[in-house]
Nucleic acid binder design. Structure first.
Lengths: 217, 217
DNA sequence: TTGACATAGATTGTTAACAATCGTGAAATG
DNA sequence: CATTTCACGATTGTTAACAATCTATGTCAA
């Protein structure tokens, strides 16, 4: 699916904000007609991943300080009750998946695969939502995490583009122990760490090569 | 905007679940080309308002018990922290709007304008989110409320299609008094009232006249 | 040199014709 | 009479050509 390809590129911060996504370019890149491309762009714009400017084309969304705060506030609102819920009814299958995911994160970190680490780091939060079995919450988290990836790319100090190392494991532990309070507290701390790693004042200049960025997906 | 028209029809429960929305019909109804219609349908489907079946057309979404539970669970997850947030930082402008909205609800109730009452009843929750000033949360709530409208139409005992009478006012009072605990508690009660007014076992048969439903919007 | 303006190229928005798919109903067969 | 098959009509999916809009370049004048 073409939408997923662009999603993934954004999640791995290979597609910088403000990059122009021209229809013609996407058509030849993905080898599909303009209709498919336009449909994908509309979908992406409805989720705030790209901005669709009338008669001017599609640009990777470039959140300002205000939008960034909104996204983090939304996550701060949703994720604590979410892990609380998970600590209550933890499905064995879900816990298993989360545990395996953390293993993937570790292995990618040790292999120094930067983009992989960044993407997996975000995906953990999505899988957290999926572990609840609630498809509505999962969709919302998917959108929030993707936009967070854009924000981190824009405002992040280059060092910590991913989540702090072992916090995911600690959260999972708390859930596994059926300890809602601890899980909630850990998530709040975790989100604060991510947000504090940002510098909301300087916005990195957007670079736009776009050439074969989408190829290796 | 064509999307808003369909939104409104769903919110007022004039468009029953499972109603087929054929492209040709919508084209002549709104007097636009097929492109606009298809774009609107794609948008609506991405928000779970309609189901887009390949080569078969668009049908107003018909949530099953599981999806209904997911929507309510999501609202139960999001709205309590939301009003808590609002009780903390209540913008005067926002409170004013909410207050006026409740007045509208009352007036519609006294005028026995059924569809109006139903729509306003749902919109209150959206405006609650808007009062936070957070556009991300607002978008999420908008989607959740619309889908709730579908669910109530499907599973609701005919009496209480709208929210219980004065609970909205009580919630607003608590927010106005900067009392997070009370506001949260009232919202939880309120959501429970809505959910308890449903009968998850019998699903009303979907009727599909569709004739001039969309006209009077 | 700088500014406005016009023209040309490129890009997006729209339309209409065509292709593919599905549902329905009639006809044929057991 | 029931069941399967086939063909037709209707509806959606796709494509390609056309129209509208914007950006950039180059020219001319102040």
């Amino acid at each position: 699916m073409i939408v997923e390809r662009i999603y993934k590129a954004v999640m791995e911060q290979r597609l910088a904000p403000n990059t122009k996504l021209s229809e013609a370019r996407l058509c030849e890149t993905f080898g599909v007609g303009r209709m498919r491309v336009r449909r994908a762009l509309l979908l992406l714009s409805s989720q705030g991943i790209i901005d669709l400017q009338s008669n001017r084309g599609a640009y990777v969304s470039c959140p300002d300080k205000s939008e960034a705060n909104d996204v983090f506030e939304a996550r701060m609102l949703i994720e604590p009750p979410l892990v609380r819920l998970l600590a209550g009814r933890a499905g064995d299958a879900g816990l298993q998946i989360l545990s395996e995911h953390i293993a993937l994160e570790d292995s990618a970190r040790q292999g120094n695969e930067r983009t992989e680490v960044i993407r997996l780091s975000g995906e953990f939060h999505v899988k957290l939502a999926q572990a609840s079995g609630n498809v509505v919450i999962s969709r919302v988290m998917h959108e929030l995490v993707t936009r967070t990836s854009l924000i981190v790319g824009l405002f992040g100090s280059s060092g910590n583009a991913s989540c702090p190392d072992d916090e995911h494991a600690k959260i999972l532990d708390a859930i596994h122990d059926h300890d809602p309070e601890r899980a909630e507290s850990l998530v709040i701390t975790h989100l604060n760490h991510i947000q504090n790693g940002l510098n909301m004042d300087v916005r990195k200049p957007p670079l736009d090569d776009l050439a074969s960025i989408l190829g290796a997906s």
